[in-house]
């Protein structure tokens, strides 16, 4: 047992900050925000890892276009999948462990918990400035296990993602309660898919209404990190696994995304100084 815990320490010992991306609601953009946050942080010269604990619907491998890669074993554990030659972004997801990409992971809680524990303990991340943990929707097995497994490493906190509709904000309120109950600090709320600018007539339409995230942040007394508009260029580049931050600095979602990353960076430098 002692040997095991010592090994655990060494695998996350080189990770400086751990962030969780959470939302009670599905499809609001947790993986998108995780991906873009990682790309923005890399843009500022940071080394970033993403741990995808969404076991029944992993999206991270697809968003980086590395879904065909496999995980290899080394002395200290599993080698994460690197996005580029410089190894500036490394990923771990159940998507890399499946034989066929369409395989369904039909697991009940205990099996999922065991894999998450392994993901936390056995991945050889090496030195990272940030480890971003992308989660499935809800407040259940995966979340409880992840928070429990990460507790010894004192995660920096959680970013909550919502879309502006009341239906989504309602689920995120429950997620806030989850954070409170498990003692996880809320770094802030991101409102995604907030408004769409028609490329034909540049009229802005609030497809999913507006302001729900900001209101919730005010109501709950947590920071509001910003609104990310619906941007066809953003979803396109995620589909193709391209670096949105590098390629579309003029798009409508760009300033919002980099602003979020900047606030996270400011938060960590304040903390360490």
């Amino acid at each position: 047992v002692e040997e095991g815990s010592a090994k655990e320490k060494s695998n996350l010992a080189g990770v400086r900050h751990i962030l969780l991306v959470l939302s009670g609601k599905g499809g609001v953009g947790k993986s998108t925000i995780s991906t873009e946050l990682a790309l923005s942080l890399r843009h500022s010269g940071k080394k970033v890892g993403i741990l995808d604990v969404d076991l029944s619907g992993p999206s991270i491998p697809c968003m980086f276009r590395v879904q065909d890669n496999d995980v290899h074993q080394c002395d200290s554990g599993w080698v994460p999948v690197f996005v580029d030659q410089d190894k500036s972004i490394s990923l771990m997801s159940i998507g890399f462990l499946l034989e066929k990409p369409d395989d369904a992971v039909v697991w009940r809680g205990p099996k999922k918990n065991a894999l998450i524990k392994q993901f936390v303990a056995d991945v050889a991340w090496g030195d990272l400035d940030f480890l971003i943990v992308d989660t499935p929707p809800g407040t259940s097995d995966e979340h409880i296990s992840t928070v429990e497994a990460l507790r010894p490493y004192k995660p920096l906190g959680a970013i909550l993602v919502t879309t502006p509709q009341a239906v989504s904000v309602g689920d995120v309120r429950r997620e806030l309660t989850f954070c409170k109950k498990t003692g996880l600090r809320v770094l802030g709320i991101v409102e995604n898919m907030s408004g769409f600018v028609c490329p034909h007539c540049s009229e802005c339409t609030n497809i999913f209404s507006k302001g729900g995230g900001e209101e919730l942040a005010k109501h709950a007394g947590v920071p509001f990190l910003g609104c990310v508009p619906l941007d066809p260029q953003l979803s396109q580049s995620l589909e193709e696994g391209r670096d949105f931050i590098q390629e579309f600095p003029k798009s409508s979602a760009f300033p919002a995304l980099t602003h979020i990353a900047q606030q996270i960076l400011d938060g960590t430098s304040q903390r360490s100084s």
Partner: peptide, 13 residues
């Protein structure tokens, strides 16, 4: 309350 979170593992669900 609408803020109540159901933080349950599988068997309870």
């Amino acid at each position: 309350s609408p803020d109540d979170a159901v933080i349950w593992r599988g068997p309870k669900k």
